[in-house]
Write a protein that binds this DNA or RNA. Sequence first.
DNA 1: ATCTCGATTGGCT
DNA 2: GCCAATCGAGATG
Length: 192
Amino acid sequence: MKKNLPRKFYERDTAKVARELLGKVLIRPSKDGLTSGKIVETEAYYGNDDPASRASKKKTKINQIMWEQGGLALVYMVHANWLFNVTTEGKETPGAVLIRALEPLKGLDIMKKRRERKNFQDLTSGPGKLTQALNISKKHYGLDLVNSENIFISNFHKDEDLEIEKSHRIGVTKDLDRELRFYVAGNKCVSC
DNA sequence: ATCTCGATTGGCT
DNA sequence: GCCAATCGAGATG
């Protein structure tokens, strides 16, 4: 079993974490089998000065862990889909990275069943799709990815050279004048 | 108790 | 490409 990324990986500038999460593997063992995928698309969300961020408003039950340590699972629902994020930066500095797309690696049959789709590209090519494929939901809220066996992120076995591109964030009503979406160029599983 | 809205998805034109 | 459906949280009364 591969090793969880350490706390210090997450407790850095959010855009840097988002960018470096590309190519890492999200691993999700479960009762019905292990599913995993390579991260190919992410978005960075900051605090106060980021109108698109959940942390730009006051603390709530949902966003409060953005002020906690880095490496925690932040899961919430948008338009009837669970979205999976990881907190970043140290305590008192809010930040999180949204995982927007994966390239399926293991457990493809399980993913197909959960998604009720059989095409490779329909499995995890969107933030709501990948949570369904990996069976991630509200119950994982607050999980510490640095220690957990249920969901964790680790380095990929081979150091591939990724060609990374960036763009403005997708779907947000008020974006910043800064490109905070990162994705692997040309990858078939990127959401758009 | 009810209403509004969203970091989406999938089906249809 | 367009657009309606979907769920839960947060706000409001």
